[in-house]
Write a protein that binds this DNA or RNA. Structure first.
Lengths: 231, 231
DNA sequence: CAAGTATATTGTAAAAATTACAATAATTCA
DNA sequence: TGAATTATTGTAATTTTTACAATATACTTG
């Protein structure tokens, strides 16, 4: 390899994940409390340098997720790559940002080798983040808004069985906008990819709501026919 | 820097551009005939390794564009990053893909240091491309389809003054779908961000068409009010 | 067990947007 | 002057979106 080329092979590449979760308080993001330099003892997006001998950006992002949640089958998607010259104090580090959606209720989040703690933060109460993580988070939030209007990814954030009210609150939290109850239900049901499970809530001190589930098979069928999801 | 870190700082990062142009034959992509290894004498997407001391992915992509076209003010947007382990024969090279839109008519394209030739290819008649450039191109094509339905970027591909028929042909070429003449015009005009220039075509052997221009100020006004572009 | 509390569920009419469809107009050329 | 070629325009039917409020069901409490 000639000198000219060697100059170029001196970069590191990392992944950073914006992990969204949803509960009764609204939309949350998972942050870690960094246990290593740089920015030790700061809250930051969970991420790691890519192992150049073993990982693609995608597989590296999945590893970070798995470390944190023990789960492999999560919704994950690349956002974009950030590469300001001075974004990392140790050298030229490009970072490929991802966003992931997880069902908060179903799984518990645990600290890992590089994270002393991991904690959910409401998206409107984030601490100031190191590196360019504020920028990455804002970009992710916009992308989530866009995507949820085009694809049925909201279900990734809800338990397997959910009520229509929960679904509506989710859309409202993400889109920062309220919907009319009747119109929302009409529209969602007309799309025909959620199914009534026949079950109901119980032990709630009001009329119990029907429980629905997402039917990915019906959705796949619609897409094949060139369907335009929108809300 | 410890050994552990050094292992990570051995990657190179490049940019690759999918440059779209539009003419009477339809939608085209600009390819270069590589003058250097690897894949010398192959048609490929124009791109280059990022200068780690000077460039961000964005600025590197703009430099490639400028080299090829002499222009700086082009529509350009990041697509995503590709990082298969074996995608480059010289080592671990990640590539940040971009797509750009240029007005074919207005400017001429010239070869550069790393390109012996540069040539427009109709998007349905591309040669087989090296690296993962086929994958990148396909991804870019899908993204263009999505974006043109959401943002008025079509105008970036047309001359300053254009006819409604030209605009319709552009949408049809990108979306691979035909529109009804009357409905298309109604919709476009109702969006109210193209303006009649008062000019007409001439020296055409049929009724001359009115010439319109894109009015970005009106578009900006609409967006502030939360407008949802769609077609 | 009756009344109270809290949320779930449902329909309809008006307005807006989309779709389907074909006849007339303006220029150049022979 | 007419032949050729593409540009331009309107309307009715259908579908989608919007705005709006009364009733239903379970649990809790007195």
């Amino acid at each position: 390899m000639d000198v000219n080329l060697q100059e170029h092979f001196q970069a590191a590449v990392s992944v950073d994940n914006v992990i969204f979760g949803f509960d009764t308080n609204g939309l949350n993001v998972l942050l870690i409390y960094r246990g290593a330099e740089p920015y030790r003892d700061h809250w930051a997006l969970p991420g790691d340098l890519i192992d150049l001998k073993a990982d693609t950006p995608d597989s590296a992002a999945v590893k970070v997720l798995r470390n944190l949640t023990g789960l492999e089958e999560l919704y994950i998607d690349q956002i974009r790559t950030f590469g300001r010259l001075d974004r990392h104090p140790y050298g030229r580090v490009f970072t490929v940002a991802y966003f992931a959606l997880i069902k908060t209720q179903d799984y518990s989040v645990e600290a890992s080798s590089w994270a002393e703690q991991a904690e959910w933060f409401p998206i409107d109460k984030l601490p100031d983040l190191p590196f360019d993580h504020n920028e990455i988070f804002n970009y992710a939030k916009e992308l989530l808004k866009m995507k949820i209007r085009k694809q049925p990814i909201g279900f990734e954030l809800l338990p397997k069985h959910f009520t229509l009210t929960e679904l509506q609150r989710l859309y409202e939290a993400i889109l920062e906008k309220e919907f009319d109850v009747r119109n929302f239900r009409k529209k969602i049901l007309s799309m025909d990819f959620i199914t009534d499970t026949g079950l109901k809530q119980h032990s709630v001190m009001h009329r119990p709501a029907k429980l629905y589930k997402y039917n990915s098979r019906k959705y796949a069928k619609l897409m094949t026919g060139g369907y335009d999801f929108d809300l």
